[in-house]
Structure formats: C-alpha cells, structure tokens
C-alpha cells in the first residue's frame, strides 16, 4: 500500500468513525440538565476557541482586522460584507504594517 493510499483510506475511515462516535456519544447523553446545557453551549465555545487559536499567535494586522470585522459583524449582520471587509482590511494592514 502506498503512502497516499494509507493516508486517504485512513482519513476516510477515521473521519467517518469520528463523526459516528460523536453522534453515538451525544445521543446517549441526558436530554435535560447540565449535559444538555453544556451541549447547547458547545457551538459558541467551539468558535471562541477556534478564533483564539487563530488570533493568539497572529500579529497586529490580524488583531486589527479582527476588531474591524467584529464591528462590521455587529453593525451589518451580513456574512458576505463581514468577509469582504475583513479580507480588505487584512490586505491593507499587511501592506502598511
């Protein structure tokens, strides 16, 4: 088996298993009480953690563009606009900082 075949078949099987096991675990947790509150809080916590590991090791251009994006997001509630202004801001800040 070539390295490519090992990686591709391993990723297909492993990722499917991760998705399936997650669902099986979730479906066996109580639907009320602290477990349910924790699962309900998970999306926000996951995105907060994702942004943290992206932005913490970055630099002033990314931090500045993140602040601008946050402002646009709160003001406009528009996904395309926030993405477009975020990209434009990071390009601008990269060129001047």
């Amino acid at each position: 088996m070539t390295d490519h075949a090992i990686v591709i078949t391993g990723l297909i099987a492993g990722t499917a298993a991760i998705r399936g096991v997650g669902y099986l675990i979730g479906s066996r947790l109580p639907s009320k009480g602290p477990w349910a509150v924790g699962l309900n809080a998970l999306p926000g916590c996951m995105i907060a953690a994702l942004l943290a590991i992206t932005l913490a090791p970055a630099g002033p251009p990314e931090w500045g563009a993140a602040l601008v994006s946050l402002g646009v997001a709160l003001w406009s509630r528009s996904l395309p606009l926030t993405m477009a202004i975020g990209v434009a801001t990071i390009a601008l800040l990269n060129s001047i900082l």
């Binding site: 990314e62 994006s69 975020g86």
Partner: peptide, 14 residues
C-alpha cells in the same frame, strides 16, 4: 482571514 471574519460574524450570531 475570510474564514476568521466569517467565524467572527457567526459567533456574534450565536
């Protein structure tokens, strides 16, 4: 950064 900006908006939506 397009994805970072998208996730910032989605976090505010949550």
């Amino acid at each position: 950064f397009a994805f970072t900006a998208a996730f910032i908006l989605l976090l505010t939506s949550l």
